[in-house]
Amino acid sequence: MITEELALVGDIGGTNARLALVRAGEVQPTAVEILPCSEYENLDVAVTDYLQRAGVDRVSKACIAVASPVRGGQVRMTNNHWRFSIEETRNHFDWREFKVLNDFTAMALGVPHVKPEQLTKVCGGSGDPARAKLVIGPGTGLGVSGLVPIREGWVPLMTEGGHVDFAPVDDREMAVLRILRARFGRVSVERILCGQGLLNLYQARAEIEGVAAPLNSPERITAAALEASDALARATLRHFCEILGRVAGNAALTIGALGGVYLCGGIVPRFVQFLAESNFRAAFEDKGRMRPLMQSTPVFVVTEPYTGLLGAAEALLNQEV
């Protein structure tokens, strides 16, 4: 079946490729499938298989979000073996249009389309919906993006805000910095605020406190913290939330995100209640004379699993992308 009114959208990470179809002028994805990247030689093979499974011979255009930098016409995935040329892929499928964007840019573009029931408010007031929004989230790395309002819609900010310096605020964090600097040299906030970063923080705190660190993965640390079965894991996750609050507050001040802060990614939605009960809010609001501004800024956790696909669909409609 040749379906000209359909477009292909995708959100490709290091492990999985999420692919879906959208109808012309719409953003809601249908026929969503999650394909393991390791089972396909490259993007074109995965797309061909997906379209066959969906019963569609051809679509007219596509937008793919990728977990890697997008420079020029070549894409080299950071955490899997896929490599492709944007123009060669467009020609191969005879697409009228093919957009490729960074996955967190797509995440930002998708946020305005997330349904209210997929947003959990953590703190803050009503803010100002007409102002910029901050989109930030720990996952494999720390993604930071934003949305700047224009007359009709939004322009996404393409940033590397996860790589700003980690700024300790007390003696314990100075010790954490010294330990991580010995391992990595320069220490960015991403060295703490991501999956591997949670493990880094856990091991650093264990060294500072002179105790064992038996847990060897972020998943195990999170599980132990939520189950209250490991005191160090629980203290580490609370510290992780506090640092996230501070970093999110700094970024919100930087871009003037009175429109709200949206916490995305694969980590925070797993412990929303824990986050709300942690020092996240106190750290987010602790900005001296800017405290009233921070108290008025709403902060949400985004629990929509396909925000990136919504953003890829929005990119096909958005002439600013």
Rank of each mutant, 00 (worst) to 15 (best):
S217W: 11
P129K: 12
V268I: 15
M107T: 15
G125F: 05
A182L: 13
R289Q: 12
T222F: 08
R238T: 03
P214H: 10
A20G: 14
A248Q: 06
R220V: 09
M174W: 06
G139P: 11
T105C: 10
E88L: 06
L109K: 01
R289F: 09
A313C: 00
V148T: 14
M107E: 13
A67D: 03
D57Q: 14
S60H: 13
M158F: 06
P218R: 13
L21C: 11
A67Y: 04
P218F: 02
T254L: 10
L157V: 13
N16A: 08
N200M: 07
L193T: 07
E87K: 01
G25V: 14
E207C: 00
G124K: 10
R71K: 15
F93V: 02
A224T: 12
Q295K: 15
G124F: 01
G13D: 05
F184H: 11
Q196S: 07
L198D: 01
V148L: 13
G161V: 01
V187I: 08
R234F: 05
V32H: 12
R234W: 03
V272G: 04
V247T: 08
R151D: 14
A212F: 03
V302Y: 04
L134N: 05
A65L: 07
F240I: 01
P168I: 02
A54M: 10
A223C: 05
G125M: 05
P36T: 14
N42T: 15
T48W: 01
G13S: 07
E33L: 14
P214E: 13
I12S: 03
K115P: 06
D49V: 15
S38I: 05
R131F: 10
A231D: 15
R83N: 09
N91C: 08
T140C: 01
E39N: 12
I34C: 14
S145M: 03
L21Q: 05
V301R: 06
V111F: 05
A17R: 09
A67N: 03
V111E: 01
Y202H: 08
A257L: 10
G256I: 12
G143V: 04
A231K: 15
A224C: 02
P305I: 01
L275R: 05
D49F: 12
L35S: 09
K287C: 14
M77F: 00
Q203A: 04
W82C: 01
S229F: 00
L101M: 14
E320S: 12
T307Q: 09
G162I: 02
V111N: 08
G137R: 06
A228W: 00
F166T: 04
V169S: 11
I150A: 08
P168E: 12
H113K: 08
K61P: 00
T30L: 12
S60F: 11
R23K: 15
K61L: 05
V176H: 06
A213R: 09
V302D: 10
L226M: 12
V100P: 03
R246W: 05
F93G: 04
I34Q: 13
P69F: 03
F184E: 09
L51I: 00
V100M: 09
E207K: 13
F104N: 05
G73R: 15
V56H: 13
P112I: 15
S145N: 10
V321P: 04
C37S: 01
E87V: 08
E41R: 00
P129R: 08
L109N: 02
A213H: 07
Q319N: 14
A46R: 02
T78K: 05
Q295S: 07
V176N: 09
R289T: 06
D128Q: 14
K133H: 08
I2N: 07
G210N: 01
D171L: 15
